[in-house]
Amino acid sequence: MPIELVVPTLETGCFFGLIALALFMVKESAALFNFAVGGLAVVGGMASSAITVGHGLPLVLGVLAAVAFGVALGLCIEVLVVAPLVKPGGGEDHHVVMALVAGLFALQQIAGVAFGKSALPGATWMKGDVLDVGKFVVSAQALIEIAVTLGLFVAIGMLLRGTRLGRQFRSIGDNTQAATMLGMPVRRIRLLAFASSGLLAGLAGALFANRAGVAFTSALQFTLFGFLAFVIGGAANVWGPLAGGIGLAFLQAFAIYYFGPAALTYVTFAVAALFFALRPEGIFVKRVRA
């Protein structure tokens, strides 16, 4: 693969990684897959584009709107969709899964009605190149995307590993029933998890929208690729989703480069079938001392 494709592929991997991290936050703390993340990313991306590119307002307002929409809609999903359906012991019930998938569908349609049916071009956060060595070019935008992604992963890793709140997140996700019996704030943590999931997805949408624009119909694909990145990386630690996202992006880039654009869907399907069937726990697995 030519070296000039490495950075764009890394950017795509970071996007998949952030969506997978949004899934990870809810899975880790509520033992649920928040399938609506794709919809949250689309709303974030389109809101940011509409504000910055559409109305010519400052970039910071667009980013803030994406994050605010993400957090607010994430909370709405928890309050309106999850809380009425989830059992006291937590876990995934048939109806909860369907309701979250329906939430994704609803968010997709809300984005289409609110921001239009055409794809919106995203705003560039910073123009120009930072590094230009022969064919190896790193744009300032790419550097920002990668830096923000790494910063978020480090921050969430530290939060989950090093703080009391993080330990609460993990323990509730491990055994919601036991956590409830011990009097832990299960509902509050679940609300925080959905809010942080919305924040990550909304920011991912706003950050990466400038690469190919964002259309309301992309929501399902975002969720599918994020879910695939999550499964490939595994849930052993916070870096699993990023590894899964980057791995998936490089596989797709290889497929397109060597076999043409149609190979993207074939390879993605093959990777999903192989991983889900042979290693559904992902590359990084939680180790427990015997």
């Binding site: 899964v97 695939l228 499964v231 993207l264 869907t265 993605t268 399907f269 079938a273 069937a277």
Partner: peptide
């Protein structure tokens, strides 16, 4: 090929199959 899968894992693989078939 997807016999061992269930829930959204199965849905995701079959949706991706549908996308590959469309391509």
């Amino acid at each position: 090929t997807t016999y061992k899968l269930s829930g959204f894992y199965l849905a995701a693989v079959t949706l991706l199959f549908g996308e590959a078939f469309a391509a």
